[in-house]
Each structure stands twice: as structure tokens, then as C-alpha cells.
Simulated scan of single mutants.
Amino acid sequence: MPDGISSPKQRTLRTPQELVQAGLLPPEALADAQAVATRYAIAVPPALAARIETPHDPLGLQFIPDAAELITAPHEDADPIADEALSPIPGIVHRYPDRALLKPLLACPVYCRFCFRREQVGPDGGLLSADELDAAYTYIAEHPAIREIILTGGDPLILSRAASATFCAACRRSPMSSCCASIAGCRWPTRLCSVTRCWPPWTSKPRSTSPCTPITPGNSTPRPIPACGASPGWASRYWARACC
């Protein structure tokens, strides 16, 4: 996502200092946010920053770092969903016989504070090399029981069209003619059509967020506000299906 240069809210905010400068973080919270930034990535793109009013509004709670992120309870696990334990080769997580995750990268345009892969994702991208991707595609082709390939990461929709086409070809090489693809956890649903035209049948599970109006004496109930052209009835889990 290209960054602007004219003002803090016109470029992706990546440091606690930039969040303070943009008015999204109070100065007294700077030290705590800096401590969080040493462990977990921060990125708030311009379109999102423009909709955040305070760190404690519905959007701010999702994307503005908080000191509570540094608290680790005794029962918590560093790999809560066992990605590492169920990863036979880099980029592949094979939890169930009939489906596999493919994680070609671990970068996102925005970092959610609740992310269960927050220990892994970050601006360095975790991008698989060409050899690692080839090995991942070979693994998929050699396991005919796999009927669904779930493209995730990171945000898979920041992949280039060329990388998406390579993924499409890998799906089509699968021994199962009914193999389908899914995109999980993306924050760029507007790019779905542009990057998936060549794909086999696919489903998408992007995350969408609508800010709420504040509760005031004349308005006692928060009301969803359509964002990015979405209608109020657009669910937080949106399903699409397409064939090329």
C-alpha cells in the first residue's frame, strides 16, 4: 500500500510516535505502546486511520496497540492453534485430511491486535522463497485427499496477480478435480475480483468492520455506519463463490 507524504493520516502509521502525531494515541500511552511495538507489528492504513476517533472506539480497540497485549496468562500457549506442530514443510499447515492451509506470506496491510498469529506476522513479510512455494505446491499435488486449499497468512490479497496465478495453477494441478480454494482473514475484499479471475471455484471469508456512532443522550443505541460502500446488511463474514 503506497504511503503518502503530506500528513500523518495520509500514510500507513507504523510506530507509536506516528499514532500519537495522528491523534490516535494519547501521549501518556506512548511508553506502553512502544513496549508493545517491540513484540508485535503495527500498521494502520490511511482509510482506516480516518475512521478511528479514539483508541477505545470499536475500530481503535481492534488496531491501536494496548499494554494489555503484553500480559501472558499462565494457561496461554505460544502456538495456540498448533500451526507449527502441524506444519510438515514451510508454508503448509495440514490439520485435517481433506484441507490444508497455504501461507505464502505473513505480512498484512493492517495488524489486528487480536490476531492469533501475532507472534509470526510482521512487516518483514515471512515471504516463502520460490523453492519453498514449489515444495508447498508439490506437497498439495502429492496428497489427493486434499479437497480444499485455504490461502491465508498474513493477508493473501496483497499477493501480486502473478503470484495469484501461480496459486491458481497449483490448485488446478491437484489430483482432485473438485479441489477448491478459500481466502481466509483478508482485509481487502475489494481486490477479490481483480486477483481471483483465473482461480478455480473459491470461497472468501474477509473481515469487514463498520464503525458505530457514539452513544449520546439523543442516540442511545450504536448504529452501524456503512463503510467503503458496504450496505448495513453486509455481514462481518461475507461469502462469495465464483468460477472462471
Rank of each mutant, 00 (worst) to 15 (best):
M1R: 12
M1D: 14
P2H: 11
D3I: 04
G4D: 14
L13A: 06
P16W: 04
E18C: 06
E18L: 05
L19Q: 06
V20T: 14
Q21M: 06
A22N: 08
G23S: 12
L24S: 02
P27N: 09
A31V: 13
Q34M: 08
A35D: 12
A35S: 11
V36K: 05
T38G: 04
A43F: 02
V44T: 11
A47H: 13
A50E: 14
R51S: 08
E53L: 05
P55A: 02
F63K: 01
I64E: 12
P65W: 03
E69T: 02
L70N: 11
E76V: 01
A78K: 06
A78R: 10
D83R: 07
E84S: 12
I89C: 07
H94Y: 02
Y96S: 03
D98E: 14
D98V: 12
L102W: 06
K103W: 00
C112V: 01
C115E: 10
C115H: 08
F116Q: 11
R117E: 13
R118Y: 03
R118V: 08
E119A: 15
P123C: 04
G125V: 08
G125Y: 03
S129K: 05
S129E: 09
A130K: 08
D131W: 00
D131H: 11
L133Y: 03
Y137P: 03
T138P: 01
Y139H: 04
H143K: 09
A145G: 09
E148P: 00
L151K: 00
T152L: 03
L157T: 03
A163M: 15
S164P: 00
F167N: 10
C168H: 14
A169P: 00
A170R: 06
R172M: 11
R172K: 13
R172L: 10
R173Q: 15
S177H: 11
S177M: 07
C180T: 14
P189G: 04
L192F: 03
L192N: 05
C193L: 09
C193S: 12
C193N: 05
W202I: 15
S204N: 10
K205Q: 13
T209K: 01
T209E: 12
P211R: 08
C212I: 04
I215S: 02
N219D: 03
T221N: 01
P226W: 04
A227T: 11
A230K: 05
S231C: 09
G233K: 06
G233I: 05
G233D: 14
A235M: 10
A235K: 13
S236R: 13
R237Q: 13
R237G: 10
A240Q: 10
C244A: 14
